[in-house]
């Protein structure tokens, strides 16, 4: 049995620990430290992970998601986001979702479509049979670059890959629709938002972009010019063009 004095000492020490823990909390997160600034390259992490690079990739992915969450809560910008995505995909080149999520955020939030497309093309090299990657390139070409021809080519490529026929075919039809770019983009995002098979996080992101585009449409007062009768763009369907 503990003596009364030891009991009291124990209670006091635990109370002191609780107090000390609360005391140091304000110093846990120090924004000036920029911990992500010191992230090494993917190659280095791959060496350091001693063969457990898939696990290391998961850890960096956790950080990337948290980092984007901080941006969504207006805590910081996305300066290190690209680096985190690059490390994640270098560590595990077959991990597809970071390519897609990273490219969407780069194109939509960072306004760097080229980097987003480059990321997805790198993903395609590593995962040539994954239809989601060319599909996403087509999607970004249409919604961000307004490049019908490139979008159609990539949707066509995606529709030829396993599992991509229905979805990519449907989106290719959007490209040839008579509606204006803004309205078609909203429809494309809505399609992703309502797709029960899509990742919930991407569906949330789609919801956010639908609202953003709807606000944009409202500001333009419905002046989204309806495209002329669209014909299949030159070169569509030619896989060698990509």
């Amino acid at each position: 049995m503990l003596s009364r004095a030891s009991g009291i000492t124990g209670v006091v020490l635990v109370a002191a620990l609780v107090g000390a823990t609360m005391w140091v909390q304000p110093f846990v997160s120090r924004p000036y430290l920029h911990t992500n600034l010191y992230l090494p390259s993917g190659k280095f992490v791959q060496q350091a992970s001693l063969g457990y690079h898939e696990l290391a990739s998961d850890m960096v992915w956790f950080q990337a998601v948290q980092y984007y969450g901080g941006f969504a809560m207006s805590q910081h910008d996305l300066a290190y986001f690209g680096g985190l995505i690059d490390i994640t995909t270098e560590l595990d080149p077959h991990f597809a979702f970071p390519y897609i999520f990273g490219a969407v955020v780069m194109a939509q939030d960072l306004g760097d479509l080229d980097r987003g497309i480059h990321l997805l093309r790198r993903g395609m090299q590593e995962n040539p049979s994954m239809y989601e990657l060319p599909f996403e390139i087509g999607f970004l070409y249409y919604t961000v670059a307004h490049d019908d021809s490139a979008a159609a080519r990539y949707f066509d490529l995606a529709s030829r890959l396993p599992g991509g026929k229905d979805r990519a075919g449907r989106f290719a039809a959007f490209v040839y629709s008579k509606a204006g770019h803004l309205q078609t983009s909203i429809r494309m995002w809505e399609e992703i938002e309502q797709d029960p098979d899509e990742q919930p996080y991407l569906r949330d992101l789609a919801k956010h972009y639908v609202q953003k585009l709807q606000r944009q449409a409202a500001q333009q007062g419905g002046k989204d010019p309806v495209n002329k009768e669209k014909t299949p763009p030159h070169g569509a369907g030619n896989r060698n063009d990509i």
Binding site: Y52, E54, L55, S57, D58, W61, F62, V65, F95, F97, P98, I100, F101, Q199, Y201, L202
Partner: peptide, 15 residues
């Protein structure tokens, strides 16, 4: 782990 729920479980388990 957004988009990698099952992957995380497999990775951590095997490691």
């Amino acid at each position: 782990a957004v988009g990698a729920q099952i992957k995380i479980v497999i990775d951590i388990g095997l490691a």
